[in-house]
Simulated scan of single mutants.
Amino acid sequence: MMASDAGSIRVFLGLGAVRVRPRMYIGDTEDGTGLHNMVLATVSYALRERSGRCAGCIRVCLDADGSCTVSDDGPGLSGEPGSGGEISELEAAMTRLDPKDLAGGVEQTGLCVVNALSYWLQIESRIGGTSFDLAFRHGVQLSPLGIRAITDDHCGTTISFQPSADTFPERSFNGARLKADLEALSLRSGARIELKDARGNPAT
């Protein structure tokens, strides 16, 4: 059952603009452009420099249930609240729009846009022995931030999302199209980007 507290309502209203006019943020929602840009935006976020370090290896999996999972070895997103009591870096990335989400094309589109246009989204971020995780439906946080200790000190973020039928009439990813786009991103960034198609179809 979706959370219905005041915090969740404010998040929904903040991302509501994305759901009303998704093409402004993610591209055409009917010809496949916006659908595939959901993946590219998630990968591009991992490639952006954060704290002087971006992901060097990114793995993209087209899951058997039609969702997509993107995992990286970047610095991770902290779930710790800010010094002034502000929401955490992780929560802000998933729920707050930034002016550059409109200004820089798909490579600047924020994770909050992907979140708003997903039927469901799950994110886990690992930083130095701690795992932070959140779950959303249509941009609404479903439960409090999960925090747990893990046995390794590896950093990175894993995001799984299912594009929403409310936004995308066709929700089947084209493996060949994504492979070409991801190869271009890899060449430009110098990062290794791997694509796996777990739907029983080749990714070529």
Rank of each mutant, 00 (worst) to 15 (best):
A149K: 15
Y25V: 07
R171Y: 00
I159S: 00
A176G: 15
I147T: 15
R177F: 06
T157W: 03
G84S: 12
L15Q: 12
V114I: 12
G84Y: 04
P169S: 09
F136C: 04
G82R: 06
S44R: 01
P22A: 08
S125I: 05
V60C: 06
A180T: 13
I159N: 02
G7R: 10
P163W: 04
R50A: 11
L145F: 02
V70G: 03
G175T: 07
D101V: 07
P99Y: 06
F161L: 06
L134M: 14
L187I: 10
S164N: 06
A17E: 14
S78V: 04
E107S: 15
S8Y: 01
S4T: 13
D31V: 12
I159V: 15
G76H: 00
D197H: 06
P144I: 08
A184P: 03
F12T: 06
I123R: 01
E194C: 11
L77F: 15
E80A: 13
Y45W: 11
T29V: 15
I193R: 02
Q122M: 07
R21A: 14
R192C: 10
G32H: 07
A165T: 12
A135E: 14
T151E: 15
L182Q: 00
T95W: 03
R59E: 13
S189P: 02
D63Y: 01
V70R: 01
T167S: 08
R21L: 15
A41L: 10
T42A: 14
S131N: 09
A17W: 11
V43L: 03
V70P: 04
H138I: 06
R23A: 13
W120G: 10
V60Y: 01
G128F: 08
L121E: 04
N115R: 08
G27W: 01
S118T: 08
D133V: 01
G175L: 04
G32W: 01
R148D: 10
D166C: 03
A41K: 03
S143H: 14
Q141P: 04
S189N: 09
L145M: 14
R48I: 06
S51F: 09
L121P: 03
D65L: 05
L142V: 11
E107W: 08
G104K: 09
G66K: 07
D5K: 07
D153V: 08
R21M: 14
A165P: 08
R50M: 08
H138R: 15
C54N: 14
